[in-house]
Amino acid sequence: MVLEGRMNRIVEKKQLSDTVFSVAVEAPLIASERLPGQFVMLQVSESGERIPLTIADVNPSKGTITLIFQAVGKTTIMLSRLAVGESIMHLVGPLGNPTHIEKVGTVVCVGGGIGIAPLYPIAKAMKEAGNRLICILGARTKPLLILENEMRAVADEMIVCTDDGSYGRKALVTAPLQEICERTTKPDLVVVIGPPIMMKFCSETTRPFQVKTLVSLNTIMIDGTGMCGGCRVTVGGETKFVCVDGPEFDGHKVDFDNMMLRLGAYREHEADANGRCRLETAVPVKQG
């Protein structure tokens, strides 16, 4: 077992859409320990922020992990600019509780936008555990739809929606989810990963049917190991830390409204950093 210094080198890079990237990173220790549902904390520069990203895929024999992310903020933009061969300065994991994978019968996996990336390994594992797998993928518009083929390969039934109707069914994911819950045989488990508002409404959709619903939360994190409480959410009236008690929780018990409020804590700062980051690279520096 290799305990030599990891280099966190990027060995493969793909652009899945305008703002969505996939990188395979050399991280043999993380690759060998990682289970579906877990995440890493990473830092791209010494002065950069620590951010969490779910591990979308893993290749233990090659010793690599795959991270799929949307370049929306300063750190993810900088990450998207790293080339093959370059390293991610700091990478630590695998963190968080792995998803509880079990054969329960019929599992519906609902992915919204970039949430499809962390959903994929869970869907795959649920299928491998012997469940009947229904996948619902949603995105605002066709270019933002990712991993369609990969999901189709594991799904027994697949529904694709876009908000604007540019691909698949013109609908929000809650519509097909509702229809599936209304079937004579309800699903046994629903797993939802996507923007907080989407996870909230999907949980509200399944609530009247009393279908167990798991959500994977993506709060702001600083350390990722449970020592600061920055990622705290209220679940069933209790304070839980997403990084060590989660990242998955019962969607019917999560206080999504508070979670969304807390996610906005540094909005002004983020907008400012984003602006500066784009400006720095957009404006060429005149030499001489």
Partner: peptide, 16 residues
């Protein structure tokens, strides 16, 4: 109110 924006544990405040 401990979940409001602006409430920090000292660990978070000091770690940042």
């Amino acid at each position: 109110g401990e979940d409001l924006v602006g409430v920090y544990s000292s660990n978070e405040y000091l770690t940042r």
